[in-house]
Amino acid sequence: MKTGICSLLRGILYFNLLVFGVAAAVSAHHSFAMYDHKSTVTVNGTVTKFQWTNPHAYLELDVYDAKSNMTHYSIEMTSINMMRRLGWKSSLIQSGDQVKATMAPLLNGKPGGLLLDVTLPDGKVWETGVPAANTFARTPEVVIGVMQP
């Protein structure tokens, strides 16, 4: 969901660029093959940093289990230029925000993944415009972490 019809229209306008105009070229730059294309994971966590940089942005999360054990996750996003064209801003996510991140996990088992979408504290869901996003199969929700009080 995005705020305002203008953002929606802009998102639609540049959807073609993101999905159709990028994937092949991105493969020459950067491969997403390190991420699981067959399953997704949902991570509930507290933002420790929203790294707004090129070539890609990153979302850093502290994720607590039911026994309050913490695991830190690094979740890769796309280029901030692409994200800007979808309406993202660097101020959209703040440290301390509790978010729900849907990601394609790293195949090597490390605590990280590729962000497909994130639900912010206001309930709005933002997609990152991952090239060829339809190649990542969405699977029944597997939730890691509990929201902190």
Binding site: A28, H29, H30, S31, A33, M34, P55, N108
Partner: peptide, 13 residues
């Protein structure tokens, strides 16, 4: 390498 989930790095990138 991609199929194995271990893509070969692109040095330029």
């Amino acid at each position: 390498a991609d199929a194995a989930g271990t893509p070969i790095a692109n040095p330029n990138y």
